[in-house]
Nucleic acid binder design. Structure first.
Lengths: 218, 218
DNA sequence: TAGATTGTTAATCGATTAACAATC
DNA sequence: TAGATTGTTAATCGATTAACAATC
């Protein structure tokens, strides 16, 4: 039963590129550019134009016009809609260290539909204080607050030794999506989505590419 | 001319998985586990065992033993070596806001061979102060310090409106690898590696997976 | 020996790219 | 009209997975 044929071949690769289209379109809109072709987007972002066309086809509600391209503002809206930017998802954050604080202070997530409703830490000094309007609670209150709020996403920014316990607690409290910033491997059961924010992996890729470049220039 | 046949088919996908093997091996070493099979690693990390075997083959200097697997500590060393963890690369960081501060304070990068030698910001209040032993300088000093140090990597943590200018300045000062944490698209010439740290992309993927799960459970 | 595991070769799968007719 | 761009179909490429002989 395929009730959403348009998403049939939606790949992680496409999804990963989508926010970069969004960012570029925002730049164009600021410059008051009205129309943009997939060919031009591809050139700017160093992608293949067919790839861009296919990616855009997943999000765009109105077809592009030959010789003209796509309306910048319409496409921007469509991609925001596609990425669920208008469909706010509540989340909680556990671990108010440096990284946790940075994420709590960052207001850019709401542009992508993410709303952090509360934070948790086991340091009493932080309890009931606020960062960027978000209150910090003791971990003990996590199950209650999560269940009452119905939030389904948890952001883990605790030290790695504590990460698995926090992960288990979140899942036991109804969380179905985990965004893990702790530099460790987590075990999650089936039916729970896990995304590791892996600076080490990024660094590995960049280092490798850098070595290649330096080798060529030697 | 192929002078490194073993790296012939090294893919970004393999490189991205490598740090997760490293982390898992570290956990095993702490637990005093002496040997591990690729099959067991695959099961734990939810990967295909052939994939794990092929990935490991890129890094491992000693073959695995049938019925036994790989020596945890030897494999750990080999992967660290493969990822260039022993080959320290100097970098500078530009933009000492919340995120910049967090990255400067993070000591985990040195485990992956990255050494931040200096930071830059245009706020005079920060000049000559230190974070985690790294001095903050005015941006004007960037070209001089970069050229003298020979550092080839730049980390961008400035607001997005300033990111392209900073990027251009880094490249003009000899940087060949850019790690971009600003949520914007950057233009770099050929011969410069660019890695965008894209929280929006991660969030898009996680949100999508979460929606699928919630849909199934509805 | 039996069985678990290794590493490799071949098959499959899916994403990217090339080619092209349709359109404005 | 000519030409740029669209969207689609087919070909290519590369990564993943299956199958299997070799090994301890």
């Amino acid at each position: 039963m395929k009730n959403n044929a348009s998403k049939e071949n939606l790949s992680v690769a496409t999804l990963r590129r989508m926010p970069s289209y969004l960012r570029y379109l925002k730049i164009l809109k600021e410059k008051d550019v009205k129309f943009i072709s997939s060919v031009a987007i591809a050139k700017e972002l160093n992608l293949n134009s067919v790839q861009v066309k296919k990616d855009i086809a997943f999000a765009s509600k109105t077809p592009g016009k030959p010789k003209v391209g796509f309306s910048v503002s319409a496409l921007l809206d469509d991609i925001e809609d596609f990425l669920g930017c208008y469909n706010i998802k509540d989340a909680v954050l556990v671990g108010v260290g440096k990284l946790g604080r940075t994420l709590l202070s960052y207001n850019g997530f709401k542009n992508y539909g993410l709303n952090i409703i509360a934070a948790f830490d086991n340091d009493p000094v932080l309890w009931n204080s606020e960062i960027n309007g978000k209150t910090i609670y003791p971990i003990e209150k996590l199950p209650g607050i999560l269940k009452r709020s119905g939030a389904k996403m948890g952001i883990i920014t605790v030290p790695k030794v504590a990460a698995q316990d926090v992960c288990d607690l979140l899942i036991a409290s109804g969380v179905k999506g985990i965004w893990n910033f702790a530099a460790t491997h987590l075990n999650v059961p089936d039916g729970v989505a896990l995304k590791n924010e892996d600076l080490a992996a990024s660094l590995a890729i960049l280092s490798q590419q850098l070595s290649e470049i330096l080798k060529e220039n030697n």
